[in-house]
Design a protein around this nucleic acid. Structure first.
Length: 424
DNA sequence: TCTGGGGTCCTAGGACCC
DNA sequence: TCTGGGGTCCTAGGACCC
């Protein structure tokens, strides 16, 4: 049977687990920009109870946050990734779950070689309690025949008190369970497909289950068929990760809109340097660099535009200078003056290992060695003295500081010795 | 004033090959 | 009356996920 583990309100739970004084209180994690607010990414049930929702822009709910003394944290991804890694290890050490894999920062799948329903439920509860004891992160567990059904079971575990946070969905209960699940809540049915199905009278997961495979194939694509099969208990999805990432992206929404090319160039340079660094950290090189730009979609009074362009490189590289040059070339291709830009980003693709680079006919291999040395030096300087210690000239010098006045301090209790919590 | 960031996969159509 | 049949590769766009 497939086991699915889902962390409850993960980012918020991470902060609460390291700030026990906030237990039972409204806590929110939001990403943040220079102006001091983005959108709410995660929130505790106490925060939901006062009317906050995931996705709310912070500026729109400032009053609600202040009136209710909500603790607001800036998203600290490295910390959540570290806690996620610990959780993974805790479960592996129990040696109860086979083929235990991470699906996302807050979700895991594995297999339980058990048939008895009661025993499955007991095992899931045991795992759940052990995770909570070792990491402080509350989780929900779902068990069923396939990934998609296990996720359905996890929904029940989360929403129905009687399950105590772990739900087993056996073969003979599938249809009963699916009858109460909205089609839009099925894993793999997104915001486009749900209305399409609803308009054809398919409003619950059971309606979808009862449609014929041929009908689903005609209406949707192969992914729709996979979801349909999964609901019928036939494993049809592969969640194993590719060896190497296929693309690496860095993008930001600006606090203010700009139409100035030099400003965009400096942002694009920052993002290019950031992706190049991520690329080197994975011991990889890339052959394609794309830049994208867009205006503010919330301002329907302004002209809208978004576009992207790709520069292909002759030789695969991880050199910040080449990647930055390629990103700016692409920017030149799509930039239009007199528009108010709000967002931009750089994407690397055609990524391969840095161990086997095909040199071009005219390239001197000593250039490659020089580049690698320089990049290694820059990486060690930035590790030690921060991202601003060495820069490309196109990155520019003055960037606005983050305004974090409305946030709780973002500590790295699990990765920085100076931030470790004190136990009295 | 202010609205996120980072990924994967599939399909249709065009260009090309014999 | 009647105009083939079988491939590959690339790209843009659209869907999905967290």
């Amino acid at each position: 049977m497939i086991l699915h583990i889902d962390c409850n309100t993960f980012y918020a739970s991470c902060e609460v687990s390291l700030r026990p004084d906030l237990r039972g209180k409204p806590v929110v994690v939001a990403n943040c920009n220079e102006a001091g607010g983005g959108i709410i990414l995660a929130l505790t049930k106490e925060a939901k109870a006062i009317g906050l929702k995931r996705g709310d822009p912070v500026f729109k709910v400032t009053k609600l946050l202040n009136d209710n003394n909500v603790a607001v944290f800036p998203a600290n991804l490295p910390k959540y990734v570290d806690i996620s890694r610990r959780l993974m290890q805790v479960v592996r050490d129990m040696e109860l779950v086979l083929n235990f894999q991470q699906y996302s920062v807050d979700e895991f799948f594995g297999e339980l070689p058990i048939e008895d329903k009661e025993q499955l439920h007991d095992t899931a509860l045991k795992i759940k309690h052990h995770i909570e004891q070792c990491t402080g992160i509350p989780v929900s567990c779902g068990i069923s025949l396939t990934y998609t059904l296990a996720k359905v079971a996890t929904r029940y575990a989360k929403n129905v008190k009687g399950y105590k946070g772990a739900c087993v969905l056996p073969k003979d209960k599938i249809e009963v369970a699916l009858a109460k699940v909205d089609i839009a809540d099925v894993w793999g049915i997104g915001r486009r497909t749900a209305p399409k199905l609803q308009s054809r009278g398919i409003s619950t997961a059971l309606d979808f289950f009862n449609a014929s495979e041929a009908y689903v194939r005609r209406l949707l694509n192969i992914n729709g068929v996979r979801t349909w099969r999964e609901l019928h208990g036939i494993p049809s999805i592969d969640i194993s990760n590719p060896e190497r990432q296929q693309s690496i992206c860095h993008s930001r929404t600006f606090t203010y809109m700009t139409s100035d090319f030099a400003t965009l160039e400096s942002y694009i340079s920052d993002y290019a340097v950031a992706v190049a660094r991520k690329l080197r950290a994975q011991h990889s090189v890339c052959l394609a660099v794309s830049t994208f730009l867009s205006t503010n979609p919330f301002r329907d009074d302004l002209d809208q535009y978004s576009n992207f362009a790709t520069t292909k490189l002759n030789v695969a590289t991880a050199d910040s200078r080449e990647i930055c040059g390629a990103a700016i070339d692409a920017l030149n291709g799509i930039y239009k003056p007199n528009l108010q830009y709000k967002k931009a980003g750089v994407i690397l693709s055609e990524i391969t290992s840095d161990e086997s680079i095909q040199l071009s006919l005219f390239q001197d291999s000593s250039q490659k060695a020089k580049s690698e040395k320089l990049m290694a030096a820059i990486d060690s300087l930035t590790d030690k003295y921060g991202m601003d210690s060495v820069k490309l000239a196109t990155q520019g010098f003055s960037k606005p500081e983050m305004n974090l006045t409305n946030f709780q301090p973002s500590l790295n209790q699990t990765t920085n010795i100076n931030d470790i919590i004190t136990v009295k």
